[in-house]
Design a binder for these strands. Structure first.
Lengths: 338, 338
DNA sequence: AATTTTAACAAAATCGATTTAGCACAGGTA
DNA sequence: TACCTGTGCTAAATCGATTTTGTTAAAATT
């Protein structure tokens, strides 16, 4: 019950292994193998279900036909949607994907990238976390095909694709302001990532555009590494300290979920006591009464674009890229909370 | 900037490639390489950061050091928790994992298994879906290392590990009955899987043990492949048709989430209008007011056990297994809904 | 008729490791 | 002195493909 090798097929077809290889790789014409022989080989290979040994092919060609996908958390909802699209798109193109999560561990990011390197992935799809800057820089220097998603480092020249964070927040803010709400709080994390900054910029700009003063005390920066309970308390203190707030914009879904818990704990009712809007959708937001309005990320679009950008790099004989930085629009979804 | 090969290391250390291989694979003593030479080789390898070429090793040894993990849905919460543990446990043992999801597509299961076969995974971790029976049978016949999780086929002799479904439901039912609730509905799907049957058996047995009559109309079997909206309506009809119900036991978290939606839609209050209990925890259940009581699966335990069972099979020189069928206890988590 | 081309494939090198078989020398034995 | 036995390593085979180079017979050219 051993594996069928190319040699076996050659023997069965009465030709040399090289001939079989040529035919099965579509180089039959080029190597002027007679059609008669070619079809015979194809038939034999087909009939006995020959499948080339991946490792052998990889070793010889130097291509693993594998992509590495690195995300912050494999249990996050962002990953869930992303992975599905990326996997199917990759498969369509003859690639498969190995997933890795940094689990919000800065140091682990570097290790992961190196681990993938050992495994010889042909290209990288990464949602960058703060600690990974050096490693990514390193990959770029080695001219490894790479695409960043969801964020990027302004200092490193890489293709990337993400939601238009600024515009997304603007959409949400305009809705709130349009409803006459002006005391709008903004909750964010303190990590130095471009997408966070852009969201904050969206918030302040929207206020300014409507001549609403931006108050520092209406902006809460939670620390990233923090006990869940501590964050909850800090959030509650923030809301209590600003009783005038009639709306809160949570800049990530993680923060939004914390917010729901605090708001429930304080016995506040959405949207009347306080309106809530959140960046990045989540299963919970659909269900949690009265439904949390969100800015939805175009995850499928991000995944597809990312794969396209990566494949373009992997495809040696394709010219330079026209567009290496892509921003896709988010979608405002109105539910009951705002 | 080419890759450093074993040959290069050999040259630098002034020895033959084979010697380097022996030393780096810990066979130095056995091959009676002098300690002096061995340490020199190790130092050289260390200094220039030599990493063996995975594909070459795989080709030669015939082991890919890769496990295939097949789940129903990669975006499910079960997968999320499972994957994390399995990945770290696998890594600890020098294996990596490729994930695949059948996405509830019966036919896709078979394809996936074959795809993984092509990729030469050394072993399989599978949460079996109805359509995969034949393919799994096939793997078993080929003596491929395999462990099933979450469910199994009584007709196929494979190692498996899952929660004790019967006992889990019993725990929940006892709690409900202990609170004096006797009109308890049971919502399940109609797929023929052992874990579903066990849960139903837990329900009926618990009722019988407390001399409560089992009424057929209190059991709702929803069809698996169905539009979300249709299921919601059917569920609502079920609740309306049985106004006497004072509690509902949802046999999967997917059903429970549907239940929450319907209950909200009908304006019922938990737990007073109706108590709710659900099998298999979910993020939403922690947050959704008043908190949904659940039977939590010991996912980490399942993952660890599964890896153990699989490794045992992969380890050629380990005797026959003592225990190939493992049932782990679930944990009843009391929240506000019941 | 001698030489060059071309068709059609076969042989062999190669990828980077592992592993088996083998070789040279030292010391011990008969 | 001839023969074995260990030591300590090297040479070469191998895994299963791809790709470069060779080979042979027939056809075309001079």
């Amino acid at each position: 019950m051993k594996r069928l090798t190319l040699k076996d097929v050659a023997k069965m077809a009465g030709v040399a292994p090289s001939t079989v290889s040529f035919v099965l790789n579509g180089k039959g014409k080029q190597m002027r193998i007679r059609d008669e022989v070619a079809t015979r080989i194809m038939q034999v290979a087909e009939k006995c279900g020959y499948e080339p040994h991946r490792m052998a092919v990889n070793l010889r060609t130097g291509q693993s036909k594998t992509l590495g996908l690195i995300v912050e958390s494999i249990s996050g909802s962002f990953f869930a949607s992303l992975a599905k699209t990326i996997e199917t798109e990759a498969e369509r193109r003859g690639y498969n994907v190995v997933y890795c999560s940094t689990e919000n561990n800065a140091q682990k990011g570097g290790e992961l990238i190196r681990m993938l390197g050992r495994q010889m992935v042909d290209g990288y799809l990464i949602t960058p976390a703060p600690g990974m800057e050096k490693e990514i820089q390193h990959l770029v220097q080695q001219h490894k095909p790479i695409v960043l998603m969801d964020s990027y480092f302004p200092s490193i020249k890489t293709p990337y694709v993400l939601i238009n964070n600024f515009d997304g927040v603007q959409q949400g803010m305009k809705h709130l302001i349009g409803k006459g709400l002006t005391k709008i709080g903004f909750v964010m994390v303190d990590v130095k990532l471009i997408q966070i900054e852009e969201r904050l910029r969206g918030y302040t700009t929207a206020l300014k555009e409507h001549k609403i003063p931006v108050k520092k005390k209406h902006i809460l920066q939670l620390q990233y590494h923090r006990q869940r309970e501590d964050s909850l308390n800090e959030l509650q203190a923030f809301i209590e300290a600003n009783p005038e707030l009639d709306a809160i914009f949570f800049s990530t879904n993680y923060l939004g979920i914390l917010g729901l818990e605090v708001i429930a704990r304080m016995g506040l009712k959405m949207p009347d006591d306080i309106a809530v809007l959140c960046f990045d959708d989540h299963d919970i937001f659909r269900l949690y009464p009265p439904g949390i309005s969100v800015i939805e990320q175009p995850i499928e679009g991000i995944a597809k674009t990312a794969i396209d950008l990566l494949m373009h790099q992997l495809d040696k004989n394709s010219g330079p890229m026209k567009k290496t930085a892509v921003e896709l629009p988010g979608k405002f979804i109105l539910r009951g909370s705002a």
